[in-house]
Design a protein around this nucleic acid. Sequence first.
RNA 1: GGCGCCAUUGCCAAGCGGUAAGGCAAGGGUCUGCAAAACCCUUAUCCCCGGUUCGAGUCCGGGUCUCGCCUCCA
Length: 472
Amino acid sequence: MHPLYLYNTLSRRKEEFSPLVPGKVGMYTCGPTVYQYATIGNMRSYVFADVLRRVLEYNGLSVKMVMNITDVGHLVSDADEGEDKMLVAVGREKKTPWEIARYYTGAFMKDAALLNIKRPSVVSPATEHIEEMLEMVVELVEKGYAYETGDGIYYDISKFPSYGQLSGTRLEEQLAGARVQENPDKKHHADFALWKKAPKEHIMQWESPWGMGYPGWHIECSAMARKYLGDRFDIHTGGVDHIPIHHENEIAQSQSCTGEVPARFWMHGEFLLVDGGKMSKSLGNTYTVDDLVAKGFEPLAFRYFCFSAHYRSHLNFTWPALESAQSGLRSLRTIIQKSSKDPAKAGAQEKAERFRASFLEAVNDDLNMPRAVAVLWDAAKADLGPWLARLADDFDRVLALDLLKGATREDKVLALSELPPEALAILEERRLAREAKDWVKSDRLREELKAMGFAVKDTKGGYEVTRIPRQD
RNA sequence: GGCGCCAUUGCCAAGCGGUAAGGCAAGGGUCUGCAAAACCCUUAUCCCCGGUUCGAGUCCGGGUCUCGCCUCCA
């Protein structure tokens, strides 16, 4: 057994992981906002969390994974100003917030499923936890960590000296109001809303001890993690962008209630870049899983692509890079499939065991997927015969690339019954031309089939027809 | 302006002090009427300058470049 090492943002180093309760891991993942489609950048982050969960399970641990769905408008910047994203969606789509949340939650679930992201043990919307959030806010007020202003309840950062421990930022060094409008009622510019008082017309609001209102956008994670995982649990994940504000605030809130930093390990996935630059919803240069599919890619090619870089590194998305991933994944599957028909060779099992050990070592080294995939490739070329499929099946518990699926749609040799009659006619004509050694005609007919979207490959006894992947 | 990350072959990328994994692409070859597939072979000394060390892509110092964060964002 290789020990499992994970990088902890809190300590800025890799630490050996062992769960609080032997054999069981509690893990929280900051989930998606559901007022627009998730981008592939978002999805990279959930692939990362999924891999982490799978690696924990691969190590024999049982994992309770909790994910929130942010369905209540994040309004607000840290200064609690700005537009409400849900409100924007409501205006754009002429639907109720609830309809929008349901729609985009569904879209997210579908994308996750396409990427073989396992469903978390608990995945639940923030609005189902208003009560738990209010309880925490009340507790914070009672304990003196929060104060009321004209427009809400704010966390008082001056009561939490260790603020900034995760990001290494020092409050004094930050320029107050450098780029955001200062809220004059706040005692400190970094104080953040726990609860906001709602104007009458506000789209989503609930009763509270302070009248109608809605939650601040950090409290949902604190409340949900506490409810499902307890005051102290093993791992909390999210994107790197969460480090400086969201997770700092979460720690401040939770620790003020419970006396402890809620999670022992904080892990963060790096951003996906597009053409060397930032991808973000606000820049509008985003792609969705649907966009990839529309270009003829398999969603799992994107998952494989995610494994080409370590989760703590930037990964640069380009279409050629995705093609490279798709090719790689395809040939991997082909090799595995072929290999299973080969006779077993002496020593193959022992070799497979060694590959398994290397694979475990790679994934246990802070989820080093590029190395793990390299181990798979080494194994694929090691002449393992039927043992390769067994090994790949085992690796797939972590990789989840459907390695044993065999041919993809494009690779699959089509039965004659699957072909349109026109294509069959041309094929028959071509067969005759080849018998007559009329190569010019034969090649011309192949071109015709190509235009119809079919590729013909001549074999000993005849030919095979496959679909040509869509090109754009 | 402040803070941080990166810099490895045509592209993506691993590497955590001992003489550069893996993938994609490309080239050569075998096979094929041709093509495709498959198989075999080939392709880097690690941004620059100093330093530490028997030995550095790998540590330290100084540059340069890139990207990111400091504002909603995975």
